[in-house]
């Protein structure tokens, strides 16, 4: 087994810069122990992609990432024949082909002879492995991150299902390829679309919310070690209050980190309404949001 205990998951993740809640650690532990894919949901910036990165790092595995988007298909996700390379080879071995065809009395016979050689052209040499094929044919176990699966079309989800159920793919010209090692699979979703029941059944589910203040303080402390802890307290509680406002885009962990970083650079060691107003562009991407935060600055600070 990769991890002996839930505590070990937490410790090893922390060593590579990821602070996991108990819930995250429990689900990761169970997924690793039973070799099930993890379906991670949560708001943008809550640490879904980062979890896969940290897992790969602490397991000393390679991370293979498949970024999903509308229109993603098998050719981009699994494999593609390298036509250009095949064409190049046919050019280079033209003479051999001519030899082969010498003496053929009809076109049908020539075609027949070429067809006999087809295997040479549809072999591993001419296959361009995309992330999914890479992940199952790797000699060492990997972490496979299928990022933002909700952006892919439902048809792609159905295709993925096959792979996730028996970790093998069939390539018509080559036969069935079975996974050398079952990868640790992390699928992430921002909830743009509901996943199908079938896909959900294959996975173990994890919801990552914005972290509790305690956890977020630890994250800030970990990433920016020399920050004053009183400032971190103020900052994290302010961010949490901001998240409760009715914003278009709520600030996520990386925005908390950016904010902390800018305050450090500006050598500001306390939050005041003026400071919030001056540094707002770090946490609010929209003007309407910034206005809302500015108007509520007093409230954001006082309920510390």
């Amino acid at each position: 087994m990769e991890f002996q205990s839930i505590e070990e998951v937490m410790n090893r993740l922390e060593k590579v810069g990821y602070i996991a809640s108990k819930q995250i650690a429990t689900v990761v532990f169970l997924a690793a122990a039973t070799k099930k894919p993890i379906l991670v949901e949560g708001p943008a910036g809550s640490g879904k992609t980062e979890l896969a990165r940290a897992l790969a790092k602490c397991l000393k595995r390679k991370k293979i990432r498949l970024q999903c988007y509308e229109g993603l298909d098998e050719a981009k996700a699994l494999y593609e024949w390298e036509y250009a390379k095949q064409l190049l080879y046919t050019q280079m071995i033209k003479e051999k082909i001519n030899d082969l065809l010498a003496g053929a009395t009809s076109i049908a016979e020539a075609v027949e002879r070429i067809a006999d050689q087809e295997d040479a052209f549809f072999s591993e040499r001419f296959i361009l492995a995309r992330p999914l094929l890479q992940a199952i044919s790797s000699d060492n176990p990997v972490v496979l991150l299928i990022d933002e699966i909700d952006k892919a079309d439902p048809e792609f989800e159905a295709f993925l299902l096959e792979l996730l159920s028996d970790f093998q793919v069939s390539i018509p010209e080559l036969g069935v390829k079975k996974a050398v090692h079952i990868p640790l699979v992390v699928l992430t979703s921002n909830n743009y679309r509901d996943m199908s029941d079938a896909l959900k059944r294959r996975c173990i589910h994890l919801y990552i919310d914005y972290p509790k203040p305690e956890l977020e303080k630890r994250i800030v402390g970990l990433k920016i070690p020399d920050i004053d802890s009183r400032l971190v307290d103020r900052l994290v509680s302010a961010v949490n209050n901001i998240r409760n406002l009715d914003l278009k885009k709520r600030p996520c962990i990386s925005e908390t980190l950016d904010w902390a970083q800018s305050l450090m650079v500006l050598q500001i060691d306390d939050l005041t309404p003026q400071v919030i107003s001056d540094t707002l562009n770090v946490i609010c991407k929209y003007k309407a949001d910034a206005d809302l935060v500015r108007a509520a600055a007093e409230k954001i600070l006082c309920s510390t």
Partner: peptide, 23 residues
Amino acid sequence: YIDVTDENRFKYLLRANFAKSRR
């Protein structure tokens, strides 16, 4: 794989298998 006397873990385990979406 887990210590079921830890109530939280027990709940996380069941939730990860019974409720497979935030919804």
